[in-house]
Simulated scan of single mutants.
Amino acid sequence: MSERASWDVAVIGAGIIGAACAWRLAQRGLRTVVLEQASPAGGSTGKSAAGVRAQFTTETNILLSKFSIEEYAGMPDSGYRAGGYLLLVPDAQWPAHQQGVTLQHRLGVPTEVLTPEEAQVHAGFVPDGLGGCTFCATDGHVDAHGLTMAYVQRARKAGAQFRLDTAVIGIRHAGGVWQLDTRARSVEAPLIVNASGAWSGEVGALAGLEIPVRPARRMVYATGPLHLPRPLPMIFDLGSGVWLRSEGERLILGRADAADVGWREGLNWTWLEPTLEAAMARFPWLEAATLDRQASWWGYYEVTPDHQAIVGRMPGAEGWLNACGFSGHGVMHAAAVARVIAQEAVGETPFIDVTPLRYERFAERPQGLTDIQV
């Protein structure tokens, strides 16, 4: 059974990106249906550490975060807390990082430049090997699940429909229309938005498209309750890759394992030791903390070859829009990306230039990291 011509756009995925896109598309008067294989925020979104920061070194990423954070700050149900981000920057990275701060200031982001000694006001740490530190008070974190549900509610109110527990198992294009097959029924629409997170590469493959997104497992370890004099902001040690922040009376912390890619499941406890070793070298006071295994969790990043998102129309695939591959930046960028996707869907020029994130870049230049990833 097929719903012919019932929809203007079909969104695959109801994580924070898909839910936000659905709202903005429906706001534009587009008949929007969302197909989600499980439940809203049931994949990577709900397992995110939910940090939001505008401390990037490229204009596109800075603006995507800046406008998203502004939207979250105005949503009472977002759980946004401006606890700040403190970045600890090694000597070798400091000159380029300072250039990024100059760009952030030009774009209206209130980043402070601190010496390692000045940064101790936020948390005690060993300053060895650091060229400097930066702190932005408007960075922080959100309630990723609650925020996604808020977007779902807004999308539904605007007329979007959500088909949950509905996996897409086949996609084909004919006569200017995409047909998406599920086990229950087929859905047809001239526009499709691939917002399926770590599954985006597989969704593209259903349509015969090569979309370079693959899953990467990430650990979030939680300590037992601590008696800290004040909550810690999100702190990211760029040299070791360790990050940590307060979560209630606990700390949560992690460190990416570049080799942990693919559909691996479960908490990787063997990664705990190297994570703690790197963390305690910078934060020796962590030695007194206990670990709460029950409060720890894991989830998937959706990574691309250059660890940057893929946003916008797919070349050679009429009516296909990508909003995927965020490599840990999905919660940070969701609000602004949704506006970009809605503008592209109706033929408008996006309010942020997302040229650096378009699919075409993979054929135009060698891939390499272009921004920090936590």
Score class of each variant (00 low, 15 high):
299 G>L: 02
330 G>A: 10
359 Y>V: 07
75 M>S: 11
372 I>L: 14
301 Y>H: 10
260 D>I: 05
118 E>Q: 15
360 E>G: 11
348 E>Y: 06
153 Q>H: 10
188 E>F: 01
76 P>R: 15
11 V>H: 03
282 R>Q: 03
90 P>T: 11
247 E>I: 10
77 D>G: 03
360 E>W: 01
312 G>V: 08
17 I>C: 00
334 A>P: 04
179 Q>I: 04
217 R>C: 03
106 R>S: 14
205 A>Q: 11
262 G>Y: 12
137 A>L: 07
281 A>W: 00
247 E>V: 13
109 V>C: 15
327 S>F: 02
99 Q>H: 09
145 H>G: 02
72 Y>T: 13
199 W>Q: 03
195 A>K: 00
131 G>T: 12
317 A>F: 06
95 P>E: 01
288 A>R: 14
48 S>P: 08
90 P>E: 15
346 V>W: 05
12 I>A: 03
71 E>Y: 05
95 P>A: 01
210 E>A: 11
19 A>K: 07
359 Y>H: 11
15 G>W: 01
29 G>D: 13
241 G>K: 03
278 A>Y: 12
142 V>C: 06
30 L>K: 10
356 P>I: 05
128 D>V: 07
20 A>F: 02
174 A>P: 02
129 G>P: 06
193 V>A: 07
360 E>A: 12
259 A>Q: 13
5 A>K: 02
294 Q>R: 10
369 L>Q: 12
45 T>S: 13
212 P>G: 02
338 A>V: 05
364 E>V: 07
52 V>T: 14
284 P>M: 07
48 S>A: 15
48 S>G: 13
163 R>G: 00
186 S>C: 04
303 V>F: 04
23 W>V: 03
135 F>I: 01
85 Y>R: 05
128 D>M: 11
363 A>Y: 09
114 L>D: 08
58 T>A: 06
256 A>G: 10
78 S>D: 11
232 L>K: 00
358 R>I: 12
365 R>Y: 09
38 A>S: 14
262 G>S: 12
222 A>S: 11
114 L>I: 10
118 E>R: 15
201 G>D: 06
61 N>A: 13
332 M>C: 10
353 D>Q: 04
259 A>R: 14
174 A>H: 09
50 A>V: 08
2 S>A: 11
103 L>G: 05
138 T>R: 15
288 A>W: 04
270 T>E: 14
59 E>N: 07
215 P>F: 00
306 D>L: 07
33 V>P: 02
8 D>S: 03
198 A>E: 10
54 A>M: 13
305 P>M: 09
14 A>P: 04
240 S>E: 05
47 K>H: 12
271 W>L: 15
208 G>V: 04
32 T>Y: 11
199 W>N: 08
274 P>G: 01
1 M>N: 05
190 P>K: 09
245 R>L: 05
138 T>F: 14
20 A>H: 03
164 L>N: 12
344 E>L: 15
58 T>D: 08
367 Q>D: 09
299 G>I: 06
261 V>D: 13
269 W>H: 12
349 T>P: 00
6 S>A: 13
109 V>M: 08
152 V>R: 15
255 R>G: 08
146 G>D: 11
134 T>W: 14
182 T>K: 05
5 A>T: 03
146 G>V: 05
81 R>L: 15
313 R>G: 08
11 V>L: 00
89 V>P: 00
